[in-house]
Amino acid sequence: MLATDTQTAAAPHAAHGKRVKMKATEVEVYYSEKRALNKINLDVREHEVTALIGPSGCGKSTFLRTMNRMNDVIDGCRMAGKILLDQQDIYDPNIDVVQLRARVGMVFQKPNPFPKSIYDNVAYGPRIHGLVRSREETDAVVQKSLERAGLWKEVKDRLHEGGTSLSGGQQQRLCIARAIAVDPEVILMDEPCSALDPIATAKIEELIDELRTNYTIVIVTHSMQQAARVSQRTAFFHLGDLVEVGDTAQIFTNPNDERTQGYITGRFG
């Protein structure tokens, strides 16, 4: 049943005419001996927002972290299967993880600005990757990234104050700006609004929708409303399985699987 689901889910991508940016095949993740994910197959299409939803502990965050190999830094975490980024397996030994993470950026659940100035936070990525050579170039990248993150107007007069002095929502947008500054192709967001108030959340959601034009976005969220608002495609995870994936409208109005039905109508989760 799972196989047919993913098959049907994967099929329409040709119809939409959108390129598959990342493709997960038979992904399994183990923490020591415990299996956290069972044979996940999922396509992520370019310039779309893909939402991963499901009850807590279902493996959606774990899956997200496999997509830029952030699980590498966790002891005892092991993974099987393939994840392709533009037809290239990111777990291939020839792939450099540092370079991979520059192409697939990440925004975390809790805003985690570095204890540096706003400017240095944004400039950090371009500097380490050697994307900027002069002060002027750095200024330009910082401004552009902050503009894109919708933060420029609020902070342009205090770029050299500490990043931790901002409010929670601003901090999260700073983290998004920081991720954008590296010029990634894919941005992974792990419940980016869970620590924020509704107004800040609305701003970030708006921002996500705009970022879609330039980037491919995968977002983990525990809020179905959020998934419905920002995403084009939705994948439902349950107990380490990918139950169902499809267009957001379809998942929320006419799910194929009764577990999905149960979750979105609030019977569990």
């Binding site: 370079q99 990757h129 990248v141 503009e147 420029w152 010029d183």
Partner: peptide
């Protein structure tokens, strides 16, 4: 947020099919 919509899309350095992180120069830096 309107300013985002107004400005041209894409960071200037972007555009090469390979992306900034796959150029030869990037390899050297790495």
């Amino acid at each position: 947020m309107t300013d985002i919509v107004e400005r041209p899309q894409g960071v200037a350095s972007r555009g090469a099919a390979l992306g900034v992180h796959a150029t030869e120069e990037a390899q050297k830096r790495l």
